[in-house]
Design a protein around this nucleic acid. Structure first.
Lengths: 159, 159
DNA sequence: CCGATATATATAGTCTGCTATATAGAAACA
DNA sequence: TGTTTCTATATAGCAGACTATATATATCGG
């Protein structure tokens, strides 16, 4: 009973779901002047007013260099500003522009709508179960990455 | 009880799992001369001997342009060959090089090992459940994409 | 106060994937 | 047969993510 393909792992389904979701929101977000990777940053900034890059890195769970580039694009597109941090000359505080703040609710609506589409037919229990299973997977993966990178930076507060 | 963040969707967890998995296999695959996106293509070619690009597109579920670029890199790295299809001058048949074929088992082992790590502590039932839930999500997403792209190309044979 | 180490960002280079568009050749059909 | 349409690839240009590395500034230990 050895299955076909590259192991019957859920990884393929996970990758596919991820790409499909991105494709679905891409157009609508683009019309709003947003891109998918920006939403978590925008939401975090809306809630916290102004944050240093390092904090966004923690919230979005991406590498520092990825965030730096993302912010470069967002700044270029007029979504965020970076102002020098008076308390630390290495750092700059990131904040939303008015335009970004005004458009954000529509962007969130796009994401939520796509989320609903993805979960059509799911009961609350189905969803909970899925989240729990994914959480377990992520915990496993985080551990493996911690082992690789040496740092114990992951597995932070349940978020 | 409105939750925090961008909806409590599993999308975040899915994206994170995807990236984490990729990070884990990246190094080992690189040492073998492979990259993560190539594995599905390599496996398909090993099984079918020689295939046109269009078939790989279907198997890997990526856009045609993505596959074309992936194959460009694989050809550049000496993993595949593209020979003119005698029956159709528009097309080229893709096949593995000897080197790729020899290294492939090690690459598969890396993927399988990472899959096991990801699923540590999962019972067979857990895994089945996870796969079933992800499959349902993907079905929903495929439908949404079909609606967008007009074509009814997705939702193919259960695979 | 000074040198060593740590921290906050930035940049270079690469991979994967997408959308949009271009081309060559095959197929249909008038 | 000739023209239109479809099909198989290719290319351009961009987003997002990663690794590796560079830079500037803070902090610590003496």
């Amino acid at each position: 009973m050895t299955q076909n393909e590259l192991s019957p792992n859920p990884i393929k389904l996970i990758g596919l779901a991820n790409r499909s979701f991105a494709r679905i929101v891409d157009g609508p977000l683009r019309e709003l002047g947003f891109a998918i990777g920006q939403l978590p940053v925008l939401v975090a900034l809306k809630k916290h007013r102004a944050l240093p890059q390092a904090e966004l890195v923690r919230l979005a769970r991406v590498e520092q260099s990825s965030m730096a580039q993302l912010l470069n694009r967002m700044e270029r597109d007029g979504l965020v500003r970076r102002v020098p941090d008076p308390n630390d000359k290495r750092s700059r505080l990131i904040s939303l522009t008015v335009r970004a703040e005004q458009q954000l609710p529509k962007g969130k609506a796009v994401m939520d709508q796509a989320g609903k589409v993805a979960l059509a037919g799911f009961t609350a229990a189905d969803l909970e179960l899925l989240m729990a299973l994914l959480l377990r997977m992520n915990t496993n993966l985080d551990q493996a990455i911690d082992a690789l990178t040496g740092t114990g930076a992951n597995a932070g507060p349940a978020a």
